[in-house]
Amino acid sequence: MSRYLGSACKLCRREKEKLFLKGERCFTNCALDKKRGKNGPGQHGAAKSKMSDYAKHLREKQKARRIYGLTEEQFRHYYEVAEKKKGSTGDNLLILLELRLDNVVYRLGLASSKKQARQVVNHGNVLVNDKKVDVPRYQLKAGDVVTVPEKYKENAVIKKLIEKTSTNVPSWLSFDKNKVAGTIVSEPTAAETSHPIDSQLIVEYYSK
């Protein structure tokens, strides 16, 4: 399945906000912090125009899709699943996205970005309830325990990340630094996403 391979900075410039797609580099070397980055990408990036309602809906959907690193087909699938569940479709959508394995690995601090988290999972360096899972879209639930193989705990990169992770873990997760194990304490709420997203705009986009 196709995946975006271009510049991550272009995506942030298009949405006119930091999406933190490159981990720590977004804090130290972000295009949005430079004069050129104030404009959108492309030759018409500097042009200013009033956004229509449709454009606002589209931009919020695109922002969410890019934050979680999904194709349009994948994102639409999550929306359709969320629509069939009880409760608010928008809230259901954000909860489903937050409970993806690659996102949880990122939220636990075992990767510096969601892109790196997908690589960690794809390479078989994540265990769920002591079983190897190498599918980034794997859906977690309350009570699941996410850890890494013993040999991976000695990796220099993971050791550096673990030193920072204890203060950044959200309330719906718990992390045991000594065991390098994270537990899904409960389902997250829509307000506990890794980045502010107005899910109602996304619902309105797909409802048209």
Rank of each mutant, 00 (worst) to 15 (best):
S194V: 12
P188H: 02
L173P: 02
P170W: 06
V105N: 10
L173I: 00
V128K: 08
V105P: 11
T165E: 12
V104N: 03
P188F: 07
L110P: 09
V169R: 09
R137D: 15
L140W: 05
G182L: 08
N155L: 04
L93A: 12
D134R: 05
L94N: 01
R100G: 15
G182C: 04
E154G: 00
N122P: 06
L97T: 10
L127A: 04
N103G: 01
D198L: 04
S166D: 13
E163M: 07
I95T: 13
E154I: 00
K114C: 13
V120N: 10
F175M: 06
P196L: 04
R100Q: 15
V126L: 01
V121N: 12
D134S: 14
K151R: 11
T165F: 10
V146H: 07
S174Q: 03
H123L: 08
V148A: 05
P170T: 04
G124S: 08
I197A: 09
P149I: 05
K159T: 05
V169W: 10
T147F: 02
V185K: 09
G182W: 02
E98P: 02
N122Q: 13
I184T: 07
T165G: 12
K141H: 11
R137A: 15
L97H: 11
G124L: 08
K114R: 15
I162L: 14
V135E: 13
T193L: 02
A111F: 04
D102T: 09
A117L: 03
D198K: 13
N155V: 01
Q200H: 08
E192R: 01
A190P: 01
V120Y: 09
K164H: 13
K159M: 12
W172A: 08
P170R: 02
V145W: 01
V146M: 02
L93I: 11
R137H: 14
V128A: 11
P196F: 01
N129V: 06
Q139S: 15
V157R: 14
N155H: 14
Q200C: 00
D130V: 01
A111R: 02
S174M: 00
D176M: 00
V148F: 04
N155D: 15
T189G: 11
Q119S: 14
S186T: 12
V185T: 09
D176Q: 02
S194G: 13
D130P: 00
N103I: 09
K153A: 09
A181R: 01
L96F: 11
A191W: 05
P188K: 03
D198P: 04
I95Q: 08
L99T: 15
L99S: 10
T183F: 01
K131L: 06
Q116V: 14
A181V: 01
L108C: 07
L140Y: 10
T193W: 00
H195M: 13
V133M: 05
T193N: 00
L93E: 08
P196Q: 09
S171A: 15
L127S: 03
Q200I: 03
F175T: 02
R100H: 14
N129S: 08
G124K: 04
S112E: 15
G124V: 04
N122C: 03
K132I: 12
D130K: 10
Y106S: 01
D144P: 04
E98A: 14
K141P: 04
N103R: 00
T193G: 14
N92V: 06
V185E: 12
K159I: 07
R100E: 15
P136K: 09
R107C: 11
E150V: 09
